[in-house]
Simulated scan of single mutants.
Amino acid sequence: MEEFLDHAEMLTANLLAFEARRCFALTLDGLFERQLKIWVMAHLAKAELARVARAEFVPLLYEAGFRHGLDLQTGAVGTTIEELHLLGSVVPHGDGSSLTKLRNRAPHLWRYANSFAATLSEEHAILSETIEVSDGDFARYMRAVTRFWGLADREPGAVVDVPY
């Protein structure tokens, strides 16, 4: 019985950690998207503001990178932020085209303990609830966002590569 309770506690702690990381990723994505739009709009003529307000995220990300000469290839900044944005869309909605894109792009986010859990999850269409964002995944998202803003910052001493 003691062993069962220990395993149940570990499973609950792991599930709670995955949920927390999904929420942190959702928050990081929302904050980045909002700041990106504000930053892009601050550097545009009034005639372009309405277009940017309606722009889809990924094209806006790369347009901003191109316009400001940001290297979004090194360190996979662009593709990592795209993955973060898909995750940020999947977490609150749970299904749809973003989930399909995320599964194709980042299958590592689904680490099933066994095939039974995978089958059960897919049968009940709860794939978003089985996303396992690791500490490494979240650190990768943080590095990409920090690198983006570090590249965008033209002041001396801007942080581009973080130590984590």
Rank of each mutant, 00 (worst) to 15 (best):
V77W: 08
T27R: 15
D137G: 01
A17F: 13
S89R: 09
M1K: 14
N104M: 09
F148T: 03
R154H: 13
H93P: 12
E63C: 02
G150V: 08
R140I: 02
S97D: 10
Y62D: 03
H7C: 04
P156Y: 05
W110N: 00
R105M: 05
D6Q: 14
G65I: 07
L5K: 14
S128M: 04
A42N: 14
R111Q: 15
A17I: 08
H85S: 13
Y141S: 03
A20E: 08
A55G: 01
L49Q: 15
L102W: 02
R105F: 03
V145E: 01
E132S: 06
K46V: 04
G65N: 02
W110D: 02
L26V: 06
E33F: 13
E56S: 08
H7S: 10
R143W: 00
G136F: 01
G65V: 08
E63F: 08
L11H: 06
S115K: 07
W110C: 05
E82H: 12
D71E: 13
T100A: 15
V133I: 03
L99Y: 07
F4D: 09
L16G: 14
G94M: 11
T146V: 05
M1G: 15
R154L: 13
R105G: 00
L44I: 01
G75E: 09
A45M: 04
R67Y: 04
T79P: 03
H68I: 02
C23R: 10
A139K: 02
K101A: 14
V77G: 08
K101N: 02
A125K: 15
T79Q: 10
D71F: 00
